[in-house]
């Protein structure tokens, strides 16, 4: 019996809709190395709808970061296109914000100055965004550290600064490459709740790469499962758990079912 929650590649999922924000059309990426070509991505079709939280899970080397970099406009695909509101992405866009596994803070800048970096790059007067920056720094719980330097902060606090930095310029789309991968379990959980609360209330569309299946299911409306050699999408799961989600959501039997389904899609690759 076919599982109604499960849409395999080639299924209606590829169809565009007016709600779609990001769409990839048979993206492939081949890296040519001295040892020969490496197919990092093969024929990837995905659609991300407005306001959705979409996670990419898959074992190391299946091309998650490559795909995210292509969507961010930081890396050109070998063939196919990535589109933002129907237009081909050829360079980074200020409508998208990027978050990395590490916070990538500039050590000579205070928390506030780090958060103001994007505004500076955009040529805005720092004073015009200072209020906004303060309120975002407060929202991520770093009110008392606004004048602190990065080396005085823990890893989790540094990642909060990175979150504040990206939220301050109000991107419509947030691209995150294992943003909490380097954090301990407790901090990760707290960050998950915070991220969900902030992005939900601001209606930000999120694309989130992770190794952690629980995290992916907990956060997402859709989980895209990828498998390596060559990197491709092996399935997409709709997560129909109700929102707002709290830690209690994890007790829901449907939550465990979802995790199991992701696992079975990953199949022999884990």
């Amino acid at each position: 019996m076919p599982n109604p929650k499960l849409q395999l590649v080639g299924a209606p999922f590829t169809g565009a809709s007016e709600r779609s924000v990001i769409q990839t059309r048979s993206i492939s990426k081949i890296f040519s190395l001295p040892e020969g070509p490496v197919t990092a991505l093969k024929d990837v079709n995905i659609t991300v709808n407005k306001g959705d939280f979409v996670s990419f899970v898959g074992p190391s080397g299946c091309g998650k970061s490559t795909l995210l970099n292509i969507i961010a406009g930081l890396l050109p695909p070998s063939s196919g296109t990535a589109e933002l509101y129907g237009e081909a992405i050829t360079s980074p866009s200020r409508r998208m914000g990027f978050m990395f596994q590490t916070a990538v803070l500039l050590p000579w800048r205070t928390v506030e100055a780090n958060v103001l970096l994007p505004a500076e790059v955009y040529g805005l007067k720092p004073d015009s965004v200072r209020e906004k920056a303060r309120s975002v720094i407060e929202a991520v719980g770093l009110k008392d550290f606004i004048k602190a330097y990065p080396k005085q902060l823990s890893g989790g606090m540094q990642q909060r600064v990175a979150l504040a930095r990206v939220l301050t310029y109000e991107p419509e789309i947030l691209l995150m490459d294992e943003p909490f991968g380097a954090l301990d379990e407790f901090t990760r959980e707290a960050m998950n709740l915070e991220l969900m609360r902030i992005t939900q209330s601001a209606g930000i569309t999120c694309i989130f790469v992770t190794h952690n299946i629980t995290e992916a299911v907990f956060l997402s409306d859709k989980v895209v499962v990828m498998t390596p050699r060559p990197g491709k999408v092996s399935g997409v799961l709709d997560v129909q758990l109700p929102r707002p989600r709290e830690i209690d959501t994890m007790k829901d039997p449907a939550f465990a079912d979802m995790i199991f389904e992701v696992r079975s899609l990953l199949g022999r690759h884990i």
Binding site: A72, L74, S93, F98, F100, L106, L117, V121, Y122
Partner: peptide, 14 residues
């Protein structure tokens, strides 16, 4: 210079 720092700046269209 860490490549992620460059990448961050590129993502901001610096």
């Amino acid at each position: 210079v860490p490549s992620d720092a460059r990448k961050l700046m590129r993502s901001l269209k610096a």
